[in-house]
Structures are given as C-alpha cells and as structure tokens.
Amino acid sequence: MLDLTAIEQLDRVIHERGRLAIMSLLAASDSLSFRELKELLNMTDGNLSVHMRTLEEAGYVLVHKSFVNRKPRTSFSLTDAGREAFRGYIQSLEAIVRQSQPASVGAPAVASGLALRTT
C-alpha cells in the first residue's frame, strides 16, 4: 500500500508545473533573466510575473534589478531556502518512486543525480 506521507510532503508552491519549471531552470543556473525564462518556458509576461511573485513571496527566489548597456535587466536566482525546498521536493519525488518500485530498481540513482546537481 502506498504511503501517502511523501505525497503530502510535496511543496505546494513548487508543485505547480509552471513554478516547478522555473525552479528547475534556476537550480541549474547562477541566475536567469526574465527574458530568458520567458523564452525557455514559452510563458506570457503576465503568467511569468505571477509565478515569480509567488516564488518571491515564498522566499524561494531573489530578484536582481540592474542595467546592462543602459537597458533595465531583471534577473532571478534561487535563495538558500529555495534551493533547500527544491532539494526537498526532489527527495519527496524520489520517495514516491521508491515506494512504487522494488528496492532493486534503479530509480534512486536517477533521482540522486538530480539532487547532486542542486547542491
């Protein structure tokens, strides 16, 4: 029988797939600009803004405003809390995969590869 604890531990802020995509991209980069995120995820300005605000309010994302060649540039990076929450989210997914498969199946190895990338 499936233990629901791992599912209940999934971070609801990250679990929404738009925000999960944003967190995944930011976890692999030092920072990404608004334009880069928008193009990578094919999101509208409004949609992306709403997700970024949610992540910022959760304390997962830091907003950097600067000027590059006199043009305003908004970029985002994960906070320590965001990185930790993302790592926890992946560990919860790993737990769900593990519960659904025999112990010998290679799912934990796949997931731990991701966890290493987020450190």
């Binding site: 995944s24 692999a28 990338r117």
Partner: peptide
C-alpha cells in the same frame, strides 16, 4: 526536471 535543468 532533469531535462529542464540541462536546458537551463
């Protein structure tokens, strides 16, 4: 997530 992280 893995694919997105690679693309990031």
């Amino acid at each position: 997530i893995r694919t997105l992280m690679e693309r990031g």
